[in-house]
Write a protein that binds this DNA or RNA. Structure first.
Length: 779
DNA sequence: TGTCTGGATGTTTTT
DNA sequence: CATCCAGACA
């Protein structure tokens, strides 16, 4: 019954909204529609705009279309992420909003650095206005299309900032925006924000792109934020051939401003929206799909959907409890090994998913120990590595000398005697005279720099000027080679024979290769207009790349990534780790129903990545912030249908049936219960201040659980006996610690090394064995 | 100006 | 635990 629905969507003109469940082949619908438009309706590739949220999704889409219609056709499509497509458009139209076409794109680190600079210059308290917090606030404003002036004049925003004791954020925002503009730079959010400004304020640009994009297609529509929404609305206004595909149940990017309100609004914005629901899942077993359905049904905010599948029943979902995070890693690696032997699976059939990047460590260690090939996605991208960014900073300054962040980064790298004091002075002069730092350096003598410093500055300026003059004669690759040689960076790295030095050298070589590849790859036929083969274009592309983009699709490795990064992917066997309170759902996201429901959607996404086997793991204790911390099992575990869960590895019966656990007793009782009795309350009070006298009536989902007790110095009780100290070296001192509901020995040894096995007694019967206790060195 | 070091501080999630 | 930074010293 899905097929006619799909068919209806292929040819039709006009606004279309496809609400499609997980595993229903969303992206395929989009690509098929594109090929139909091009083949059957003779729509020119130039007139089709397809927007995705990851480069990978865009690349796959292009590849599929290329296979059907030929690569030369596919190349001319505007397929890409919102950010990269808009960057490309803005490059061509930059002059209209006062930017150079070679504007720099600041990544998050650059942007935070600018925030920091601005806060410092405004002589505000840097503790109070932490770059992270301020930047996030600015980011949210931009995603909601709120500019600095509007921000400062908005009563509610000002109230919020005043309440959080950061009343100057509006002013910082204003100064930040001005500084970015002065630097000829846009941050990630600007790529959306400025795109909107461009279309809003320039009728000719708007009309040009409205005419151009006869068909607009958007993947993962539930992830769009207001800025993206308004841009699409403007772009699509002429032809109204906007086709969006999304799944409200997979909306997991609200921190980026995404709102499912966009799905609801879409239907109101156009007269006759064709709405199609795709509810058949082609990916997962019945069991897995049912668990997913059950989980998501706990959410209040959702569009009614019930996914079904013709796939087989499949195996039960395995729930696994371990003692520590290291055991969790070990269990997963063991299971992978066993699966490979028994069922002839390959490494690439497995994915390990988790809530936070930090969780990858224990999995990584155990996989390495077992000799299983793996790859971690996410974390730092290639272009964020220090050595690569340093090199790129040189290229940035050649292309856009106003780029102060790049300049500050490399002016003294390699060390050439231009220190902090000199830099501060140069920036100050630049601000006072309203010119760029680069211009100050160009006239260093006039600004009073003397002797050694002056000479260093002049030599630096001459070198950069030389690069700039080469820019006209040489291609991007040759220029980069010259930069590498003249600065001595490459030689320095080459001479560093440490392992890391070697890796750094290789990374820079790889950077050079990537530049070469860039200039040799044929691109879109249409945009000769802004020199898309140039270094400037290259630099604008690479900031938008993440490390999942250079994917060697067929390499046989186990894949490790966050759940966010796994969206849109599928794997035969999926492990989801860390199903613990404060981790998943994350402690940061349990304060409102909306937040908690997003965590639940995240869990839903995790479950629906699996085709045939799903393992959910959690551990009693794990290292966080360098300390062993103990967590309750995730509340999501109890939301799953009992009949489909195999708990034989969890060592517990369902808590609902056990007659004990958090779900028992009155709300007040539950709120008072604690791990270690009254002492916790006292500690909590110290840490967080006295509780409010009158507690608001909280709905059940918001009941605060007691904080897991942290380890702290502790005198051992009289009857405490360490069960095994056989690995303890002579002369090593030990100290007792209270930990969670028990006691443990702390002793000398490097982190993570299993130097001792320690049992500890807990309330009455429980005995817990820590195999890999991370034990601190004491003198 | 550059380098070393102890103490503070921090972990959601990403283009 | 890892990273960052201010302040001390070469």
């Amino acid at each position: 019954m899905n097929e006619p629905q799909r068919e209806a969507v292929m040819h039709k003109d006009g606004p279309i909204m496809i609400i499609a469940g997980a595993g229903s082949g969303k992206t395929k619908v989009l690509t098929t529609r594109i090929t139909h438009l091009m083949a059957a309706h003779e729509v020119d590739a130039f007139n089709i705009l397809a927007l995705t949220f990851t480069n990978k999704a865009a690349a796959e889409m292009k590849e599929r279309i290329g296979k059907i219609l030929g690569n030369s056709e596919a190349r001319n499509l505007y397929v890409g992420t919102f950010h990269s497509v808009f960057a490309r458009i803005l490059r061509g139209e930059a002059g209209k909003i006062g930017y150079p076409s070679n504007f720099t794109i600041y990544d998050t680190d650059d942007a935070k650095s600018v925030v920091k600079t601005v806060v410092k210059e405004m002589e505000l308290d840097e503790k109070q206005y932490k770059p992270n917090i301020v930047y996030n606030r600015i980011s949210s404003a931009k995603n909601a299309l709120v500019g600095p002036a509007e921000y400062i004049n908005d009563y509610t925003l000002q109230q919020e900032d005043a309440r959080s004791n950061r009343p100057m954020i509006g002013q910082i925002y204003d100064a930040y925006a001005k500084r970015c503009f002065k630097n000829g730079a846009m941050d990630f959010d600007d790529l959306l924000f400025k795109m909107y400004i461009l279309l809003k304020n320039n009728a000719d640009s708007l009309s040009k792109f409205q005419r151009k994009f006869k068909y607009i297609l958007i993947d993962e529509y539930q992830d769009t934020n207001p800025a993206q929404y308004e841009i699409i609305k403007l772009l699509g206004a002429m032809h109204e051939n906007v086709c969006v595909v999304g799944d409200d149940a997979q909306s997991i990017y609200s921190f980026r401003g995404a709102t499912i309100a966009n799905i609801l609004q879409f239907q109101k914005d156009y007269d006759d929206v064709k709405v199609v629901k795709l509810e058949q899942n082609y990916r997962s077993s019945k069991t897995i799909l049912n668990v997913a359905n059950e989980i998501i049904s706990n959410n209040k905010d959702q569009i009614e959907k019930r996914l079904f599948t013709d796939n087989g029943e499949g195996e039960k979902v395995k729930l696994v409890r371990t003692m520590t995070d290291n055991d969790e890693g070990k269990y997963v690696s063991d299971t992978i090994k066993e699966f490979k032997l028994r069922n002839h699976f390959f490494n690439k059939d497995f994915a390990i998913l988790y809530r936070t990047n930090a969780q990858s460590r224990s999995f990584e260690e155990s996989l390495r120990r077992m000799g299983i090939a793996y790859r971690i996605y996410g974390g730092m991208s290639f272009y964020q590595r220090k050595e690569v960014k340093d090199f790129v900073a040189y290229l940035r300054i050649v292309i856009n000398p106003k780029d102060e962040e790049a300049l500050k980064r490399i002016i003294n790298y390699p060390i050439r005697g231009i220190g902090k004091t000199t830099i501060d002075k140069a920036v100050l002069f630049a601000n006072e005279n309203n010119i760029s730092m680069w211009e100050v350096l160009n006239n260093a003598a006039r600004f009073g720099f003397k002797s050694g410093t002056l000479e260093s500055i002049n030599n630096f300026v001459i070198m950069i000027r030389m690069f700039q003059s080469e820019l006209d004669k040489k291609n991007a690759y040759d220029l980069a080679v010259i930069v590498g040689k003249s600065t001595g960076i490459v030689k320095d790295l080459f001479n560093d024979k440490t392992t890391e030095g070697l890796a750094r050298y290789e990374n820079v070589q790889e950077l050079l290769n990537s530049i070469k590849e860039f200039i040799e790859t044929p691109m879109n036929e249409e945009d000769g207009e802004v020199g898309d083969k140039g270094l400037g274009s290259y630099l604008q592309q690479i900031v938008l790349l993440t490390d999942s983009d250079d994917d060697k699709e067929n390499s046989d490795v186990v894949k490790l990534m966050t759940i966010h990064a796994a969206k849109g992917l599928e794997f035969p066997v999926v492990f989801v780790g860390g199903l613990e309170e404060t981790l998943f759902p994350n402690a940061m996201s349990i304060n409102t129903r909306e937040e908690l429901e997003e965590e639940r959607r995240l869990f839903y996404v995790a479950i629906t990545r699996a085709k045939s086997n799903l393992f959910l793991t959690y551990s009693n204790a794990r290292y966080r912030f360098g300390q062993l911390q103990q967590n309750d099992p995730s509340r999501f575990i109890d939301e799953m249908p009992e009949a489909m869960i195999d708990r034989s590895y969890a060592g517990t019966v369902a808590r609902n049936n056990a007659g004990s656990g958090w779900n028992q007793g009155s709300a007040a009782e539950r709120m008072q219960r604690g791990f270690a009795g009254s002492s916790d309350a006292g500690r909590a009070e110290k840490q967080y201040g006295a509780p409010p006298t009158k507690k608001p009536a909280l709905p059940s989902y918001a009941i605060p659980k007691p904080q897991a007790s942290k380890t702290a110095e502790h005198t051992p009780s009289a009857d405490f006996v360490p069960s095994d100290t056989s690995n303890l070296q002579a002369g090593q001192k030990v100290e007792h610690q209270k930990f969670g509901f028990g006691e443990v020995l702390k002793m000398e040894g490097a982190a993570h090394n299993p130097i001792a096995t320690v049992n500890f007694e807990t309330n009455g019967e429980k005995k817990i064995m820590l195999n890999y206790a991370k034990l601190r060195i004491l003198e």
